[in-house]
């Protein structure tokens, strides 16, 4: 079964497509917003450029999905700049603040997130909504670098003087990472309509099968996933930690201060 473009969806189908798109777009956007906090603060010039580059990729992916929401009738203001922060549906993993100078957190977060992102994209290659399926290849091509980058760093940060910092990041971030696979209200419809060809439980299992052995191979202790209490705020039902509201205020600050009629687009952009 294949759905057509945005204009021939039934209201139920529309809700499901929107939920899927907002989950993805918000994840990418907020992850990137956090990564750019490292600009000029990363341990070396090279690692600064690499993480900035990854952030730029994620902003680009967010743009891919927000554009599809705009095809459905939303404006960019409604998607980002003037949207109530209490309606965003990114996972609470990506909104967590960094403790000052905690590079291990940034790297581990990227590893956990990008591994999940890769699985999610693979489950969209055959999406029944063609505008999504058409855009997956670009994302997949870039995610490979992100994972290689994170894995290479993790291999070097562990086993020495920084091992405990990585372990602390695992302890702190792992429960939040599980919210990547928490369901929103339209999850059943997303799978029934074939918008995503795998359900979240299967994606979670596949993710655990990759992430847990890799981290354990680095002598890190990973919490038993089924015994981890999911954080109260998963993000997927639009519940968020306080840090998110501060972050939202930060990144919309300039937009609000300038009181623009509409967001500025750079010349040559979309």
């Amino acid at each position: 079964m294949s759905l057509d473009g945005p204009h021939s969806l039934t209201p139920d189908e529309r809700d499901a497509v929107e939920e899927l798109l907002f989950r993805m777009a918000d994840d990418e956007y907020v992850a990137a917003e956090r990564y750019i906090e490292w600009q000029i603060f990363a341990p070396t010039l090279e690692s600064d450029l690499a993480l900035s580059n990854i952030a730029q990729d994620e902003f680009g992916h967010a743009r891919l999905w927000y554009d599809l929401l705009q095809d459905m009738g939303y404006s960019e203001q409604e998607c980002i700049w003037e949207r109530d922060p209490a309606t965003w549906t990114h996972s609470t993993l990506v909104e967590q603040p960094f403790e000052e100078g905690d590079w291990a957190d940034a790297i581990l977060r990227s590893y956990l997130y990008d591994t999940a992102e890769n699985l999610r994209m693979e489950a969209l290659v055959d999406s029944s909504y063609p505008p999504i399926a058409d855009r997956v290849a670009k994302v997949l091509a870039e995610e490979r670098y992100h994972r290689e980058h994170a894995q290479s760093w993790l291999e070097r940060l562990t086993g020495g003087e920084h091992h405990e910092k990585v372990q602390a990041a695992v302890d702190r971030l792992f429960p939040y990472a599980l919210t990547l696979f928490a369901a929103g209200p339209n999850e059943d419809a997303i799978v029934e309509l074939g918008l995503r060809t795998e359900n979240l439980d299967d994606l979670r299992e596949e993710w655990l099968e990759i992430v847990v052995p890799f981290l354990e191979s680095l002598d890190l202790t990973v919490p038993e996933p089924d015994e981890v209490a999911l954080p109260e705020e998963t993000g997927r039902d639009a519940s968020h930690t306080d840090a998110w509201f501060d972050l939202y205020e930060d990144f919309t600050h300039t937009y609000n201060e300038l009181e623009l009629e509409e967001p500025i687009r750079l010349r040559g952009e979309g």
Partner: peptide
């Protein structure tokens, strides 16, 4: 790491 950084 040199190969990863050089790509960027």
């Amino acid at each position: 790491m040199a190969k990863l950084f050089a790509q960027i």
